[in-house]
Structure formats: structure tokens, C-alpha cells
Design a protein around this nucleic acid. Structure first.
Ligand SMILES: [Mn+2]
Ligand SMILES: [Mn+2]
Length: 555
DNA sequence: CTGTGAATGG
DNA sequence: TTCACACAATCGA
DNA sequence: GATTGTGTGTCTCCATTCACAGCG
């Protein structure tokens, strides 16, 4: 594939590209997961392959769009000569269903306001002229028609037909098996072919399947269903449904391959239960959730309920084996409050004392950070508003090959911007040897090497590198001014917990004309340091990395 | 008439 | 599949 | 000061079309 740096030359996609993409997905899944598919899913595969070309094209068009229903008269595609024939073929082969009813929501989505007004206006007395569409639909709902009558009435003028694609549950399975997640879809192919996204050519692992058996696939489907149930229940304020789901989830998930995803859902749900004062249920859920902040929330619930001993016990459990630094910090800060309640000696925690400066600046539209950048730039110091972008970018460049190294199970689809285990604690352990080698190499030969990486790999998608922010001139300055030893210490902290430590880095990096560098967190009026920002500042203090906080107010 | 936002296709 | 950050409101020590 | 909830920009792009709402 020829690559061009000229942004004006957009590659042209071949006729029927979207069907090709879908077929490619379909073939890949059937090749890799043939033994996992149900008879129904296999039947989908073979009958899809039997469809006439136009019908297959139309089906793929529709499943890529917002549904579920579509008006046949509105379907116009230049590359499908006879849409009506394609619709008929899809109806005959059970890839489309012709709807005989319409929910108010679907009517609202599929029909224009004037169409609805002319269909039902005669039935609604004193209909205000300037009524909003949603209110008009409410009036129609007030007519108490059946959904069948709704469809009949609203299509009586145009005699249009509403159809919906079938087998959407099979499509979800296919997507899940191909991508390994439920959020990526066919547009990935298009964005890749257009050059909008450029994925690094890592080696796909065909030996290790993400889903070794049907059960692991079913578990993922169950997770998705629980998520949907929760979202649905929250939308309709159905507290009983949320509680029922919580009791279900509180059964726990032993030997789950997707435990961390369950934990995220548990936490989201339990937080909501806390807001509803459903403390016992929340505690049950937190008890089966082995992820931060489950134990922190448990301690807070105990405290709030007056169970100070239980709260203290929970803090002790945390301190004896903290899951992460945030959890460890929490126990330290929270324990004194409990001890005061219990009237026992208090383990006071020393307050932070970071280097700081205070100054007043002219009001600036870009906020305090931009005002500080302008302030320094006018004084001869190069300043960049980078937040996490600089350090993470340097990390991504430094360890590019290690991040994209072929590790069993790390890459399961062609459209990944990070290995699947990037956020797990084992990321470093699995790559320890090569990561240490890389550090030794950089320590010996210097950071200049990163310029080569930058030029060679510029534009490839990497979860750590924001190419728009990390300009060449910023990189050059950073390499020239930041000692390798500082960066290595910082990278080790990132490697220690990549998920948590990729954030909280200071707003600005400063490069004074006289040399050296400095990191600066800017705080405007009413703003204060966040916990993760404090942890980085403590780390910088400990390792003599120049960093300080600037408290700014407006002149 | 204009501005806005969702949807769409590439 | 969001996340990371700032900002605002509220509360208790 | 601590905690909690909310808003904002951004997220992997961009041109085009459509429907709607509010205004004069
Ligand atoms: Mn910031
Ligand atoms: Mn800041």
C-alpha cells in the first residue's frame, strides 16, 4: 500500500469495500473460531454467502447504521441498482423483517414532524402550531393507539414499509470474536484504509485465541447484557431492577477471564447503591470486587454507618497489602479520622510540602495554564502545556518495540493501539528482559535514539503517543534538557502501574534559555492538587526531579 | 432564515 | 470506550 | 480541608445532508 504524506490525496476505496470488509471479518472469525460457533451462527455464515450481491450489500449497509428500523423508501444507494429487489431478497431469506408495529420512539426517529402531524393531527383537538416534535409524539401517545395502529396511521399517506435487520445477536458474537471487544466495528477497516488511523504492523497472535471455548464467549456476552440491563434500569430510574442486578453480581465471578471488567461494573453499580443508601448491598458487591476503590468505598460506608471498628479493620487490611498506591494513600489519610472517633492514639500523617510560587497574571482566555505559558514564553523560557502528553509520549517512543512485542495473547485484531495486557501489572513482568535491555541501550547510547523512533514511526497509533502534542521541537528540547536518569526513574514508576501512573503529571514543562528544565503544575483560584498529582510531586521530590506548583490568581 | 446537532459515507 | 482535568457545591472538624 | 458530583475538552477524520427549533 503506497503511503503519501500529502493530506490532500485521499485513497479511494474500491466498489463494495464495505461488503469486502464484512466478508473479511466473517471469514476470519469462521476460520479461527469454527469450533465455537453454534449451528445458528454457522447457518448465518452460509446463508449470507448465498445472498445475491446487492442484497448482501444492503444488509451490511443497514447493520452499520442506527436502527433498528428503516424506511424502505428512504433507502438510496448509488451502488445498489435495485433496492426494492434487494429488500425482497433479504425478506425472503430472513435477513430482514418487515415490521407490523412501531413504538413511539421509533416513530419519532423515522418520521418527520410534518408527517406525524398530518397523520395524527385530525385526531388531536387544539393542536398548538409551534409545538415541539417530542411534545407532538407525547400527544400521539395520549391517543392510546396500539403500536400496530401507530404504524398503519403514520404510513397511510406514503404507504412506506419499515424493515429491521435480523440476526443482530449473531452480529454481536462475530464482532466480539473478531475484535475481542464490543466497541470496535466495521468503521475500523474504513478509517484504516483511508489512512485516518495507521496501526503499527505488530504480529497478530493466531496461536492464542482470546476466547478458548464457548463458555468464555458466553461470559463476555453475559457481561454485556448486565451492562445493558444496568444502563436501562438507570434510564428508567428502576431502583428495584438495579438492586436485583446487584444481588446477582454479588454472587461473584470465580476464575473469570474478564474479572476486571466485572469489577468495573460492580464498582459503578455499588456507587449508585451508595447514593441510594443501600449500604448492605453495596458492601456485598464491594466484597467480591478485587479492584480499587472497592475497599476504600467499604471503609467509607462502615464509617458513615458509625461502624468505626469495621472501618479501621478495613484500613488495616488495605495497609497490609494495598492494591495500588491510591489505596495505600487512602488508608493512611482515613485512619486518623477513625482513630479520633474511637478515641485511640492517632497516626498523624505528615502534610505535603512542595516547592511553590504565587503570582498574579493578566486574565487570559485559555485559562491559567495558557496564561503561564504566555508568561514564561515572553520571559525567554520555552514553556509547553503538555500535562501527561510529554512523559507518556517519551515512554511510548522509548519502549515502542517492547509495547508492540509479540507476547502470547497481546494482539488479537489488526486495529489495536496497545497490547491487551498494557494496563495489567504483568505488563512489565512479561517484558522485563527486553524492557531492561532497552533501558540499558538508552542509558549507553543516549536519548538521541528517540529522534529516530519519532521520525520512523511518526503517525502510527500508539496509546502512549499523542503526535499532535509531541512535536519534533518539543521532543528535541526534552531530549537535550532532561537527564536520562530522571526519565528512567519516571518510566519505572509508569511501568510499576501503567494504568494509574499515566496521569497526574504537571501541566507545564519549562525550558529556561539558560538550560535545564522544570515541571510546573498550575493551580488557579479555587483549584487544588489532586491525589494522583500529589503522588507524582512526592515522587519528584524524593528523586530530585525539578517540579513545583504555581498558584495563580487574576490581576 | 439561521444555527445546531445527529447521521452518514468514505 | 472513554478519560483526565478543573470547577462547584456541600459538609464536618 | 475533604468529599462528591458536574462540566469540559478530547477522544481515531471530515464533508455533507437532513431535520429541527427558534427567530424576525
Ligand atoms: Mn491540568
Ligand atoms: Mn493544573
Amino acid at each position: 500500500m503506497a503511503k503519501s504524506n500529502d493530506p490532500r490525496t485521499e485513497p479511494e476505496l474500491p466498489d463494495g469495500y464495505y461488503l469486502d470488509n464484512f466478508n473479511s471479518l466473517l471469514d476470519t472469525v469462521c476460520r479461527l473460531y469454527n469450533d465455537l460457533l453454534t449451528p445458528e451462527e454457522l447457518a448465518f455464515y452460509s446463508s449470507f454467502k448465498d445472498l445475491p450481491d446487492d442484497a448482501a450489500r444492503l444488509y451490511v449497509r443497514l447493520i452499520s447504521r442506527v436502527g433498528p428500523g428503516f424506511r424502505v423508501q428512504r433507502l438510496v444507494y448509488a451502488d445498489i441498482s435495485d433496492v426494492d429487489q434487494a429488500v425482497q431478497d433479504l425478506l425472503d431469506s430472513k435477513f430482514l423483517a418487515s415490521e407490523d408495529r412501531l413504538t413511539p420512539g421509533e416513530m419519532n426517529r423515522l418520521f418527520r414532524k410534518d408527517e406525524i402531524a398530518s397523520a395524527f393531527g385530525g385526531l388531536i383537538p387544539d393542536l398548538p402550531r409551534n409545538i415541539r416534535k417530542s411534545e407532538l409524539v407525547e400527544h400521539v401517545v395520549g391517543l392510546d393507539l396500539t403500536e400496530v395502529q401507530l404504524l398503519e396511521c403514520v404510513t397511510s399517506d406514503s404507504s412506506d414499509v419499515v424493515v429491521s435487520p435480523l440476526h443482530t445477536e449473531v452480529l454481536l458474537v462475530l464482532r466480539l470474536l473478531f475484535f475481542g471487544n464490543a466497541y470496535q466495528n466495521l468503521t475500523e477497516f474504513v478509517l484504516n484504509d483511508l489512512g485516518v488511523m495507521r496501526y503499527f504492523p505488530y504480529q497478530l497472535d493466531k496461536e492464542h485465541r482470546l476466547f478458548p471455548d464457548r463458555a468464555s464467549l458466553e461470559e463476555y456476552l453475559a457481561l454485556l447484557q448486565c451492562r445493558d440491563q444496568y444502563d436501562l434500569a438507570m434510564e428508567s430510574d428502576d431502583r428495584a431492577a438495579v438492586c436485583a442486578l446487584a444481588r446477582d453480581l454479588a454472587q461473584g465471578h470465580k476464575d473469570s477471564r474478564i474479572a476486571t471488567r466485572w469489577y468495573r461494573l460492580n464498582t459503578r453499580l455499588a456507587r449508585q447503591l451508595e447514593r441510594w443508601q443501600e449500604f448492605e448491598l453495596a458492601l456485598d458487591l464491594y466484597a467480591v470486587t478485587v479492584a480499587h476503590p472497592a475497599r476504600e468505598r467499604s471503609a467509607r460506608i462502615h464509617y458513615q454507618c458509625g461502624n468505626f471498628v469495621s472501618a479501621g479493620d478495613m484500613c488495616d487490611v488495605i495497609s497490609s497489602a494495598p492494591i495500588c498506591e491510591a489505596e495505600k494513600d487512602f488508608a493512611l489519610r482515613f485512619r486518623p479520622r477513625i482513630q479520633r472517633k474511637l478515641k485511640i492514639p492517632v497516626d498523624a500523617v505528615a502534610p505535603d510540602c512542595f516547592a511553590e510560587q504565587r503570582l498574579s497574571l493578566q486574565h487570559h482566555e485559555g485559562g491559567v495554564e495558557a496564561a503561564m505559558v504566555a508568561h514564561y514564553n515572553s520571559g525567554g523560557t520555552s514553556a509547553f502545556f503538555v500535562e501527561n502528553g510529554l512523559i507518556n509520549g517519551l515512554f511510548g517512543l522509548a519502549f515502542w518495540q517492547q509495547i508492540f512485542a509479540s507476547i502470547p495473547g497481546a494482539f488479537v485484531n489488526p486495529f489495536q493501539i496497545r497490547p491487551l495486557d498494557m494496563n495489567s501489572p504483568e505488563f512489565y513482568q512479561r517484558r522485563r528482559v527486553v524492557v531492561e535491555q532497552r533501558m540499558e541501550e538508552l542509558r549507553e547510547t543516549g536519548l538521541q535514539e528517540l529522534k529516530n523512533v519519532y521520525i520512523e514511526l511518526h503517525g502510527y497509533s500508539n496509546a502512549w503517543v499523542n503526535w499532535g502534542l509531541l512535536t519534533k521541537s518539543l521532543l528535541d528540547l526534552a531530549i537535550a534538557r532532561i537527564p536520562y536518569e530522571h526519565l528512567e526513574m519516571i518510566w519505572r514508576r509508569i511501568l510499576f502501574d501503567p494504568a494509574a501512573n499515566r496521569s497526574g503529571l504537571p501541566d507545564l514543562v519549562l525550558f529556561p534559555s539558560a538550560g535545564s528544565y522544570r515541571l510546573l503544575e498550575v493551580k488557579g483560584p479555587g483549584d487544588s492538587l489532586q491525589d494522583n498529582q500529589k503522588r507524582w510531586l512526592r515522587f519528584f521530590q524524593e528523586h530530585s526531579v525539578p517540579a513545583e506548583v504555581a498558584y495563580v490568581d487574576w490581576q
